[in-house]
Design a protein around this nucleic acid. Structure first.
Length: 749
DNA sequence: GGGGGCTATGGGGGG
DNA sequence: CATAGCCCCC
């Protein structure tokens, strides 16, 4: 027997060595699920199955990366040829190759949530619908959910059930918005996140040129991680790949119904039940031994989850020692909660010799991170917040990427909308509206429309220069690699100059971010970075864009070093820490107030709590407060119902040991508040006589009603378009750019 | 065309 | 409380 098989327990080994036919592994938290998955892939390869015949799907890049690394550890470089990656990235890769078969081209853009929102908002406006009723968020969710259930606009429009639901929600036109949205995405050569699944389904279902059989042949063995989080669409795709005449049905799904926490994006446990009936030859393995957590933690987790009615019977057990009891922090206010969590972290580090990376703070919503950040800073504890704005969501980075997206696919309407007038080149909203209207009338992209729509000569010149910028970047992209193209784009677009000209700290930090983007692209080009298990020979821009559009904040590999991790309970899934704080355990927070009205949603919140506490290996600390600021008001909440579901035997009442009086209020209050520039230099209007603007020249000293005394540093533009750069000392951000045509300035010398 | 300031609105989890 | 959208002024 190979060495790695000896590392497994009996059930794990059976699951790993089950070669042919369908199997389902129900794996409790900490039961060695990843080990089973990776060893199974290794075992398949050792048994003579070619690595490129194996498809292993995960939900996060992190999980995929870990799996690949661990397979690599067992079978070496062969691991690189396994199709291992997220549903989205693997499917995107297939779609690039097969795009023509579903009416796309291989250079299609991936629209992120912001792109989707901005497009929907335009459609809603264009249809003259009330945007309070048709809120972009609701509409987007509805459309996303339709796609996740394999409902095309056509089917949607014919479904009495969906139409009457929309009628009841006062949104009868939703089907029409959906139809327009799909048409607009197609016109722009764009797919949103749901499309990466939906279009792949379409591709396989339509089976043009036998493309379905092609992939059925390629993927002889399929493995799916976190199966409980798949939606109907994902399961439908899996069935198209493995359920066919003469199929060996080599599919292995791994999951845990108790950890299903993504119903809000369409995940359904029905898939687990359907799987059992869809595959007659199915063997099921249950991994119930927990290797991660101490007995107190395992007992607490078991006790909590029994309060759910809907679950597959499973008994999590451990051979680990009792360990420390679970601590409970009861705080009066959210501030006190933050302080005591920070203090407890210091204590854990001192008494139990934990390092920062051993520790995580988990909260229900990302907005809760702020207070903990504040107190960690005061205590000099380094930390990283995951799940906030990712690097690629920063404004300056999105601007850069928009130029590159346009170079790859000029019909990308959302990228064009974003940068046609950034940096400012005089193409304002009214011109843009003309472009949009023309494009919609003729059912062409904005790009095709800008050359045809009638505009004033000045705007036309601006558009010509924009057009040329894109063409130039495009040429560069065709002839060279992603790094040189990006570098060129940063200059040619005018973004670098624009940021430099801002002369502010903010502009400087944006400039730095653009530079880190360039570093990142350089790394991408130079390293033989593995993407989705394959070494990428293609260093072109299009490949790079696809790569980054599917990254999340959890994939930021620059976040290294010794820090405490702060993240939402959702992001924590699949991770483990020696010490875990689950904070904000109050009714209305955790469980969320949005879930209180539905028993099903409460059960999902409970599973989420179950996920949270099972992240802990040795120390679990739960905390809540009586009052907190929420939605700008002080609110009182009762302690979370989930706390009562833990047996007292596993709990240590932390409150008895620590009373608030040991923690005097810090003296520096409001230290982290921003200091807005509230000063105003209003002059007495009587003394002020504006000089004619055509008399103003470089070097003159002038007076401004609001900004006070200033010196004219520069004048750009001609005639009506003259813009003066004036340095007003005595105010924050002293450099102002003022349009002379409108400015009221008095020449003083 | 651009920017500042005011008002209204919504407020969860993620690829 | 944060942000988006709007209006008004320059």
């Amino acid at each position: 027997m190979s060495d790695y098989l000896k590392e497994l327990n009996e059930v794990q080994r059976q699951a790993v060595m089950h070669l042919d036919g369908p199997l389902m592994v129900i794996a409790g938290p900490g039961s060695g699920k990843t080990r089973v998955l990776t060893y199974r892939v290794s075992y398949l390869i050792d048994s003579g199955i070619a690595p490129w015949e194996i498809l292993a799907l995960t939900f996060t890049n992190k999980a995929a990366r870990e799996m690949k690394n661990r397979i690599g550890g067992v079978v070496g470089s062969k691991a690189n040829y396994v199709w291992a990656g997220t549903f989205h990235s693997i499917f995107a890769r297939i779609l690039r190759v097969e795009a023509e078969k579903i009416g796309y081209t291989s250079n299609f853009t991936i629209y992120d949530t912001d792109d989707t929102r901005s497009l929907l908002s335009e459609i809603i406006k264009d249809m003259k619908l009330d945007k309070k009723i048709y809120s972009v968020g609701n509409v987007r969710t509805r459309i996303s959910s339709a796609k996740s259930n394999v409902i095309s606009p056509l089917i949607y429009a014919k479904s009495d059930e969906l139409l009457s639901q929309d009628q009841a929600n006062n949104m009868p036109m939703l089907y029409k918005i959906y139809e327009k949205y799909v048409a607009r995405c197609h016109r722009a050569g764009a797919m949103d996140f749901d499309d990466l699944l939906y279009q792949l389904f379409k591709l396989l279902y339509l089976n043009k040129e036998g493309v379905r059989e092609k992939y059925q042949r390629i993927f002889r063995y399929i493995l799916v991680d976190e199966f409980q989080d798949t939606n109907y669409l994902q399961y439908s795709i899996l069935k198209l790949l493995v359920k066919y005449e003469g199929s060996e049905e080599n599919i292995c799904v791994v999951g845990d119904d108790a950890q299903s926490i993504y119903a809000f994006r369409g995940a359904t446990l029905q898939n687990i039940f359907d799987f059992q009936s869809d595959f007659n030859q199915l063997r099921t393995y249950k991994l119930e031994q927990n290797y991660r957590s101490t007995l107190h933690i395992v007992n607490a987790a078991n006790s909590v989850i029994t309060h759910n009615k809907k679950q597959i019977n499973k008994d999590l057990w451990t051979r680990q020692q009792e360990g420390q009891k679970i601590k409970l922090i009861r705080a009066m206010t959210d501030t006190e909660e933050g302080r005591r969590v920070a203090d407890t972290i210091l204590e854990l580090k001192n008494r139990n010799h934990l390092v920062n990376t051993d520790i995580a703070i988990l909260y229900r919503t990302n907005a809760q991170s702020r207070i903990f950040e504040e107190f960690l800073r005061r205590s000099n504890i380094p930390y990283v917040v995951f799940g906030g704005l990712s690097f690629y969501q920063r404004k300056e980075i999105k601007d850069m990427i928009a130029y590159m997206r346009l170079a790859v696919n000029p019909h990308d309407d959302e990228a064009l909308r974003r940068v046609i007038n950034y940096p400012k080149r005089g193409i304002g909203q009214s011109s843009m509206n003309k472009i949009i209207n023309y494009a919609n009338e003729h059912e062409i992209s904005f790009w095709d429309s800008i050359g045809k729509v009638e505009l004033g000569s000045r705007t036309l010149n601006a558009i010509k220069s924009f057009y040329q910028i894109i063409i130039d970047i495009r040429r560069k992209a065709e002839s060279t690699d992603a790094y040189l193209t990006t570098s060129y784009a940063s200059k040619r677009s005018g973004i670098i100059d624009h940021l430099k000209s801002q002369n502010s700290i903010e502009g400087l930090s944006r400039l730095e971010n653009v530079n880190s983007l360039l570093d990142g692209v350089k790394e991408f080009v130079e390293n033989d970075e593995e993407i989705e298990g394959q070494i990428q020979e293609d260093k072109k821009l299009a490949t790079y864009l696809q790569h980054i559009s599917l990254l999340t904040d959890m994939d930021d590999n620059k976040k290294t070093g010794d820090y405490v991790s702060l993240m939402s309970t959702h992001s924590a899934k699949g991770l483990e820490f020696k010490a875990v704080f689950v904070v904000g355990l109050e009714e209305n927070m955790f469980p969320s107030y949005l879930s209180l009205s539905s028993p099903d949603q409460i059960e999902e919140e409970r599973r989420l709590f179950y996920v949270a506490i099972t992240r802990a290996e040795q120390y679990l600390i739960l905390s809540y407060c009586n009052t907190r600021y929420h939605f700008g008001q002080i609110r009182h909440n009762d302690p979370s119902r989930f706390l009562e579901e833990i047996s007292e035997d596993n709990l240590e009442d932390f409150n008895a040991l620590r009373t608030p009086k040991n923690f005097p209020e810090p003296k520096v209050l409001g230290f982290f508040q921003k200091h807005p520039d509230t000063r105003r230099l209003d002059l007495d209007p009587v003394d002020f006589i504006a000089s004619p603007s055509d008399q103003i020249e470089v070097g003159m000293h002038v007076l401004h009603m609001k900004f006070g005394k200033g010196e004219v540093k520069r004048i750009d533009g001609n005639r009506d378009k003259k813009v003066a750069t004036i340095y007003f000392d005595g105010i924050n951000n002293p450099e102002k750019r003022i349009m002379l045509k409108f400015a009221k300035l008095q020449i003083t010398e």
